[in-house]
């Protein structure tokens, strides 16, 4: 599988990564090498295998519906770079 610069720009944008134009080619070729590994994997015969969603053969543990987590907002808000009136503050998001 090959990958072009446009795709690298696109996925960098989705991941909110600032990839400089000068870095594009090196990132592209790194990714191409990774994708090459997937080509090898894709060549394996999986006819008799079910798709796997998780590497461990285990079943999800569940919890009972109990609201047992206390309010720690004061402590947690103090960790944020900015907070006011009980809200976390982030740069203005225009809808």
């Amino acid at each position: 599988m090959s990958i072009d610069s446009a795709t690298v720009r696109h996925i960098a944008r989705l991941a909110r990564l600032a990839v400089a134009e000068t870095e594009l080619e090196s990132v592209r070729s790194d990714l191409a090498r990774v994708l090459h590994l997937f080509d090898d994997l894709a060549a394996a015969n999986v006819d008799n295998l079910n798709p796997l969603a998780h590497p461990h053969d285990q079943v999800l543990g569940l919890r009972d519906d109990v609201a047992d987590q206390p309010d720690r907002s004061e402590e947690l808000l103090a960790l944020a770079p900015a907070a006011q009136g009980g809200y976390y503050l982030v740069p203005k998001v225009i809808e």
Binding site: A67, Q69, R72
Partner: peptide, 24 residues
Amino acid sequence: STASKLFSGAPTAYGAEPNTQASL
């Protein structure tokens, strides 16, 4: 309509003070 969240034990009651029902 559950008492706690889908993946945490924080309460789901409507109208609480901001961030008082947000667990780790």
